[in-house]
Amino acid sequence: MSVLVDKNTRLVVQGITGSAGGFHARQCMEYGTNVVAGVTPGKGGQMFGGKVPVFDTVWEAKQKTDCNVSMIFVPAAAAADSILEAVDADVDLVVCITEGIPVMDMMRVKEQMRGKKSRLIGPNCPGIITPGACKIGIMPGYIHKEGNVGVISRSGTLTYEAVWQLTSRGYGQSTCIGIGGDPINGMSHLDAVKIFNEDRHTEALILIGEIGGSAEEEAAAWIKDNYKKPVAAFIAGMTAPPGRRMGHAGAIVSGGKGTAAGKIEALKAAGIAVAETPATMADTLIAQMKGKR
C-alpha cells in the first residue's frame, strides 16, 4: 500500500540532539515511526528520549542498529556532508529536511551520489509519509489518511493543502513525497512517478509543481507514454513576476523556460488534469478518477 517507507523502516535521525531534530524525531515516534538511532558528532553514548541510542557517526549507527533510512536535521552549512555520510553508510533512503543548503554543495553531493545505492529526497522538503505506518519529516500527521492516492510535490505547505483536500473528501494517500524546492535536489518528479508506477496499490497521483526548471515537463512526457492511472496536477507561480526569486531557490523563471503556462501546457498534453486553482487539486483528481473508470 506504499512506496519507499513503511512499518519496516528503521530510521536514523542525523541532528537528533538539536532543537528541530529532537522535536520532529519525537513527533515521528509518536506517529509510529520506528526510530532506531540518532547521530550527532560528539554526543555518542547519550540516549534520546530515554530509548533511542545516539552515535557519533552514521557508520556506527548502521553497524549497531541496521538503520535503513536517514532523516537529516543538520544545519545548512554542514548538511551536505551529512548527506554524504548517510550515503557512505549505505542506507537505502536519505531524507534531508534542512533548508538553505548552498547550491554548489548540492551540486557536488549529486555528483558524488552517482552510482550509489542510496536515494535522496530533498533537501528543503517536508519529507515523506506513508499514512498510518511511517512519517519521516515535518508534516502534520493528522491531516493524512490511509488510502490509494500518491502525492508528489516540490512545496511543503502546498502538499499539506492537497492532502487535506483529499482526506476531507474521504480519499486516503498511499505515500506522500515532498521532493523539495531547491534547484538541485535528489529525487525528481519523474523518479517519484516511476516509483509509484511500480506500486499496484497506488491508484492515482497528484503532482504539484512550481515555476522554474523543467522537472514537471520531463515527468509529463514520461507519464504520457508510460503511466496509465489518473493523474492531476497543479503548478504554482502563474502570477509570479518573471526573473524574481521567490523563496525556494527553485522558483526562478528564466529565458521563457519553466513558466507556469509552459508547464501546464506540457501536463495537459500528457493527458493530465490540471487544477485551475490550488483549492481544487483533490476535486480535479477525483473527477479524473471517475472519468477513467
Binding site: S155, E210, A236, M246, A260
Partner: peptide, 22 residues
C-alpha cells in the same frame, strides 16, 4: 511556505484580484 504563497497569489488573481506582495 513559498509554494503556498505563490499559489495564494495565483488564486487571488483567479478570482479577479491583484496581490500586493509575496
Amino acid at each position: 511556505g513559498a509554494g503556498l504563497a505563490m499559489a495564494t497569489m495565483d488564486i487571488i488573481k483567479f478570482y479577479g484580484g491583484e496581490p500586493a506582495n509575496f
